[in-house]
Design a protein around this nucleic acid. Structure first.
Lengths: 342, 342
DNA sequence: GGCTGGAATGAAAGCGCTTGCAGGCAGGGT
DNA sequence: ACCCTGCCTGCAAGCGCTTTCATTCCAGCC
């Protein structure tokens, strides 16, 4: 259908208020440059006509879109939903809008998404993790778009990032199990090829064990995509392939919960016969009984803070390159001392 | 830092290819209008220079942004993550981008988000549910932006929508419990004031009971925000306020799972003493043992289909106003016949 | 009352792209 | 050979806004 009234343009507002285009523009975008009464007249006219500024025109004139792009992997899903939401809220509060893209199948898809978002004029960009095509970063660099790495930390200090040390958190959780007396470990890891967080988490376990002179045999590690079902299957496979471990660490909470369920179904007592730990602290972790020992990941804060840092940088402020957030170990009931005789 | 090379513009590409601006434009956007060899030359030049079209300029000239807006409530979160992802993927495949906003505190926030997205030039809009400020729809109408209602169905047939009948699904689940022999029901509902899906789900239970001449006493209904913790608390409250029911229906899966956990902690056997049913079929529902009886909500398909319908309408095609998707009852182990003597 | 200077306003030039229109050129019919 | 028909290509006019620069206005002062 043809619109009865085409959307009013700034020129219409100016005419209605009896001022020039330039004045109307200033009245709306730089109020302090305009005399009080004319500003009021313009605002009134705008309200009356239901004027909505034309974003593309403004973007063309200012080369700013007031838009931030974000490219998320969906794989380890629920935890990203919170970050996305927090980011969107933070942006909205500052008059910005979120351009969101997500990728399923790896870094080329991410590259394409970044290209599209830069083309759409994103003023800043939020990426997840440290694994990216060099070209992806080159595009951002060239376009002069500041970006923030989230979740992971760039230890080299070259890129702006906000997150926490996955390796460090993983070491803490392993330490906790070592302190309880465990010596035989197994890990249900995420996809370490496509996911640096999963990689670092696994590495953290190995590091902590190595520090006590212990090793994690390859047989005691399975690598699967994040899901409860895969947690179950992974645990079953470990049990079959290399039984005798007394503690299993999941690459994230759904995997750990899968392992937990598998224990329950097989009559393996937790934590009496088997300790189980996760990573992320999703809501469910605290509601199980016994509750799942895990690491609390500050996902909402990562989203919020990524937005704030980007704003600050766009405003020309200098922010510390690395922002590390706490990721505390949450000890609950699924971890305890190993059984006397395994 | 000053960019060493400013981003190339179409004029640079044209010059490099030895053609006019107009031809370069057509070579990239309407290949069939241009001779094969010139097109090749232009493409080569574009690739060489790393040309990225300037979205705002294009949008200004065409009054199309190739962007779709979506405004989601985060409340019942995990289920929306899937839909968002599917929508983003669908859009990306068609060269579109997702402008995402989410709201926490009700419809005025949604209105502001829609205003912002329309200002950013969204070509189409995805909304959730039937509850909106009249002004929200008026803005879309006026701007000529087609929108799709998702999750709910507009029975009046006035608005384009894709989803399923929450009431119908809720009736089926109640029916199933009635058929098993249950007569005393309780419901842990979502927030019916701010959420038409929660409202319809509750209404469905009442309808199904009424059809058999049964009533759902007010004491047997608690209303809470969606979460596992609230499921636990809600169930505890029901037990205290009006015990004697043999089946409890959760407004969504997390609520039902909360009830389930509470049963387990209190030593109430499921389904021996208490049947529990949910709504959504999140991954966990199928991994519990016994598995949770629930309704499978096609959330990814809703996201995908919303995108497709919008594309079709933008291309001038006519699509059926209402698209209803199946939401099958998934019977698992948490529902069974009521105990002989409650 | 004329002058000065700062504040408020207006005129107009873009921002980078698309697209209607007109011109150029090759090939076919006569 | 000449004209006409189509197909490609180029010119130039916007799309709706911001922003520089020039102009006008007004208050205050000598």
């Amino acid at each position: 259908m043809p619109r009865s009234t085409p959307n009013p343009r700034l020129a219409d507002v100016a005419r209605a208020a009896g001022v020039s285009l330039a004045t109307a523009s200033r009245a709306l975008s730089e109020p302090e440059m305009v005399r009080e009464d004319t500003r009021a007249r313009v605002e009134e006219a705008a309200a009356m006509l239901g004027y909505v500024p034309h974003g593309a025109a403004r973007a063309l004139a200012t080369s700013r879109t007031r838009t931030i792009g974000a490219v998320f992997p969906p794989v380890d899903n629920p935890i990203f939903a919170g970050a996305t939401h927090a980011l969107a809220q933070e942006l909205a509060a500052a008059g910005y809008t979120l351009l969101l893209a997500s990728y399923d199948y790896g870094l080329d898809e991410e590259l394409a998404a970044v290209r599209a978002l830069v083309g759409r004029g994103a003023d800043g960009m939020v990426l997840v993790g440290m694994d990216h095509r060099p070209e992806t970063l080159a595009i951002l660099e060239r376009a002069g778009v500041p970006w923030e790495i989230t979740w992971s930390l760039d230890e080299s200090g070259r890129q702006h990032c906000i997150g926490f040390s996955h390796r460090g958190a993983s070491i803490r959780i392993t330490q906790h199990l070592l302190d309880l007396g465990h010596r035989e470990f197994a890990v249900i890891a995420g996809d370490t090829k496509r996911n640096d967080r999963a990689r670092e988490r696994l590495a953290g376990v190995k590091d902590a064990l190595a520090a006590r002179g212990l090793k994690l045999p390859a047989k005691r590690v399975v690598e699967v995509d994040f899901s409860v079902a895969n947690g179950r299957a992974g645990f079953a496979k470990l049990l079959e392939r290399a039984p005798g471990f007394t503690a299993v660490i999941g690459g994230n909470d759904p995997l750990a919960i899968g392992a937990l369920f598998e224990c329950r179904d097989r009559g393996i007592e937790v934590p009496g016969q088997m300790s189980v730990a996760g990573f992320d602290d999703i809501e469910l972790a605290g509601e199980l009984s016994p509750g799942l020992t895990t690491v609390r990941v500050p996902s909402a804060e990562i989203g919020r803070e990524a937005g704030r840092r980007l704003f600050a940088r766009l405003a020309g402020k200098v922010v510390p390159t690395i922002r590390e957030l706490p990721a505390p170990l949450i000890v609950r009931g699924t971890t305890g001392p190993p059984p006397r005789r395994p």
